[in-house]
Write a protein that binds this DNA or RNA. Structure first.
Lengths: 101, 101
DNA sequence: CCTTCACGCAACCGGTTGGTTGCGCATCAC
DNA sequence: GTGATGCGCAACCAACCGGTTGCGTGAAGG
């Protein structure tokens, strides 16, 4: 039903940082991102690949460079899932307290 | 506002399944859960420990058994974070399109 | 044309992780 | 008291993961 892959993509702090930069700083390439980070370009590229696989990022090749853009779509799914689970739990609690009247 | 640990806790499908059962089926022990799962009690116990560390589950020892209850709290943080990132992205887009007028 | 720059691919490495088995201990039921 | 039951702890294992180095390639730019 729900994307544990998205959660896995968000599980790593470095990857979360990359996503954050794309969301708040706008589209960027792997080399640009790695320039202000303590890891290699290849490492960043791997993270971007993971984010892309999770649909959290859009890949836009242009000439010899590849620019990545944040995609909020999967985050909507996450929110929906979280609210669903929370709601069924609330309903459970209400049903239980009712049976004690 | 630093929920990568929560994401890590939700990243594993088996662990997500355990959480789902607790949320929809109500509190349970490790042995109860493992009874209807293809893994050992100890494996389930490890997952429950991870969920507990992330605050997604509450540990209630009672006699010789330990019952675990779902806790929706951290999911609220996740939702808040997701909406925050999504919103700043929206604002970014609006600001950009404005600069083209 | 030749150099430079941004990428992708592959190999490799240490640490983490999901899972198992085996054990010892405490609690409950008789 | 004795036996069964539920847990926790520890050791171990294969697989995965985040990161590195090294190399090959193809698109700019003079």
């Amino acid at each position: 039903m729900i994307p544990h892959e998205v959660f896995a993509a968000l599980a790593d702090p470095t990857r979360l940082e990359v996503l954050n930069r794309l969301a708040k700083g706008g589209p960027a390439t792997a080399t640009e991102l790695s320039a202000t980070m303590p890891i290699t370009r290849q490492a960043v590229a791997k993270h971007l690949a993971a984010l892309d696989a999770a649909g959290l990022v859009e890949r836009q090749p242009a000439g010899r460079e590849v620019r990545y853009t944040f995609d909020p779509g999967p985050l909507g799914d996450v929110v929906q899932w979280a609210e669903d689970v929370g709601d069924t739990w609330d309903r459970r609690l209400r049903r239980l307290s009712k049976s004690f009247e």
